[in-house]
Write a protein that binds this DNA or RNA. Structure first.
Length: 290
DNA sequence: CGGGTTACCTGACGGC
DNA sequence: TGCCGTCAGGTAACCC
């Protein structure tokens, strides 16, 4: 479900909800098997902690508290929502209407409100991390590439260096979180369309000297697509919802993703689809060239 | 090590 | 109506 824009939308709302910096009263687990092992006894050490900030790194949400950090990844179907104090009490009853089958954990705050995590497919992550350690020492964050929206490192020169050793299709390469973070399956197709680059183009061909313009276009397209998607509240294909329960709006601005057989909005050619590294990939054979 | 495939899990949807 | 195959926004383990 969530790529960088959707995670950022959730981060902003989560941050707004927690802006009065409440204290964490308790963690309640209704299932402990999200992806891998998840919650640890470590979390109990954060009870009584004051929430300091909610950050985002790549597709991870990082909640920093006075006693340590919480790392949350939404996987494909993870959602956070806030329950007011009344609903929070009602949630105790397993049959309560505010409690769903896939609500796996709850963080109770000093205000009596709860943050509830729902995740039908359970690919998400929820665990502690140490905010005082450098990223390189955190197994989850150590190998992440630059943030496309606010790290200057991510530019055409950087891409050229990285791409010249990559023989695989450019589409799967820009989804590699070691190269640049936040681009998932939707925004990879969208960014390549706007840059006029064919998704199957071997990445290293883009590193050639005469492709500098394409590289610059790709950098700009990635930035533009991600930031416009944030402004529109993310993309909702099936079940992405922000914390306020709203669907995103950027799916209405997709030029290729999910539009197989429909006409290209720029040139009226039929949009094509194929599978690249196991993921559906959409493109316009007229607008996007190898 | 790069690159492709598969697994993880549930639900929605289309075809029969 | 129901059963079955396919597919879904991510990551990581596993192959060669």
């Amino acid at each position: 479900m969530p790529e960088l824009p959707e995670v950022e939308v959730v981060r902003r709302q989560l941050s707004a909800v927690l802006k009065d910096k409440p204290i964490i009263e308790a963690f309640c687990f209704y299932r402990k098997d999200l992806r891998d092992i998840m919650p640890q006894k470590e979390l109990q050490k954060l009870v009584g902690a004051q929430i300091i900030s909610v950050q985002r790194r790549a597709k991870y949400l990082l909640i920093e508290t006075s006693k340590g950090g919480i790392l949350s990844h939404l996987g494909m179907t993870g959602q956070w929502r806030v329950l007011n104090a009344k609903d929070s009490l009602a949630f105790e009853n397993a049959k309560s209407v505010v409690r769903g089958t896939h609500d796996h954990l709850r963080v109770i705050l000093s205000t009596g409100e709860s943050l509830v995590y729902r995740d039908p497919r359970r690919f998400g992550i929820f665990e502690t991390y140490n905010p005082s350690l450098p990223e390189k020492q955190n197994a989850r964050l150590a190998h992440l590439g630059p943030e496309p929206l606010f790290e200057d490192l991510f530019d055409d020169v950087y891409l050229q260096q990285k791409l010249k050793v990559r023989a695989g299709p450019i589409k799967s390469v820009i989804m590699d979180q070691k190269l640049v973070v936040g681009v998932g399956n939707i925004y990879a197709s969208e960014a390549l369309f706007h840059a006029g680059i064919h998704p199957l183009l071997p990445a290293q061909k883009l590193a050639a000297k005469n492709r500098q313009e394409s590289l610059q276009a790709l950098v700009l397209s990635i930035r533009k697509v991600l930031s416009e998607a944030i402004e529109k509240g993310g993309s909702t294909i099936a079940d992405f919802k922000s914390m306020s329960g709203d669907a995103g709006g950027f799916q209405n601005f997709h030029f290729v993703y999910g539009r197989e057989g429909e006409l290209c909005l720029k040139c009226k050619t039929k949009i094509k689809v194929c599978v690249v590294a196991g993921r559906s990939t959409f493109w316009c054979s007229s607008c996007q060239k190898k």
